[in-house]
């Protein structure tokens, strides 16, 4: 049990997917201008990533490994993720419309979020067991959510500040992300 807690802490804080592993930065900058969209994106990522982590792990073990097709990993994972996202979207629309409305347009965007594919590949590369894979998928996506929501909070304040013209928008966003990343960098001391 202790191992899982350690794994979770390391995935959320020390190896934070956005700020330390540099994955999922496009939605990070794209959806962090407003708190609402940031929360929506964070929820959608947590939801999809846990499912995708489990399914790609099963795909790897029972299809790719079994038939010696590891070289098709990239292609099969992205297809599995795309299909999964589509399926989740249809399912939510039918059965849980409230959640569907909440996640809104963020669901389809997740297919091209490199955090999702990235975490699935990390799970395989680190040779996690199924449970470890679930824990790491959940905590990586929770780390994504944490960083995204913190960043959105900072960015809402930045809107009120007077910023030199060339620095506006994405540019100041990146510099702010750098400072936030510096804060997370301190967690490296825990490792």
């Amino acid at each position: 049990m202790g191992d899982y807690v350690l794994l979770a802490i390391s995935c959320v804080l020390i190896n934070n997917i956005l700020l330390m592993q540099y994955l999922g930065n496009c939605p990070f900058l794209g959806t962090s201008k407003k708190m609402e969209t940031a929360v929506g994106m964070a929820m959608a990522v947590i939801f999809v990533l846990v499912l995708a982590g489990a399914i790609t792990w099963l795909t790897e073990m029972f299809i790719l490994k079994k038939f010696g097709l590891e070289y098709l990993r990239t292609m099969s994972f992205i297809l599995v993720i795309a299909a999964l996202v589509q399926f989740v979207e249809m399912f939510l629309k039918k059965s849980i419309p409230a959640l569907y409305a909440g996640l809104g347009i963020f669901l389809p965007l997740i297919t091209t979020n490199c955090a999702v594919l990235g975490v699935c590949l990390i799970n395989i590369k680190e040779e996690y067991t199924f449970i470890e894979c679930l824990v790491s998928s959940f905590s990586y996506s929770a780390g994504f959510g944490l960083a995204l929501i913190l960043f959105a909070g900072v960015r809402e304040r930045i809107l009120l500040a007077r910023i030199p013209k060339p620095l506006q928008d994405t540019s100041i966003g990146l510099v702010t992300a750098g400072l936030l990343s510096l804060a997370f960098f301190a967690f490296k001391g825990m490792a």
């Binding site: 700020l19 330390m20 540099y22 620095l167 994405t170 540019s171 100041i172 966003g173 990146l174 510099v175 702010t176 992300a177 750098g178 400072l179 990343s181 510096l182 960098f185």
Partner: peptide, 9 residues
């Protein structure tokens, strides 16, 4: 990592 963000910005 922090340097990458700041530098790109």
């Amino acid at each position: 990592a922090p340097g990458a963000f700041v530098c790109l910005g």
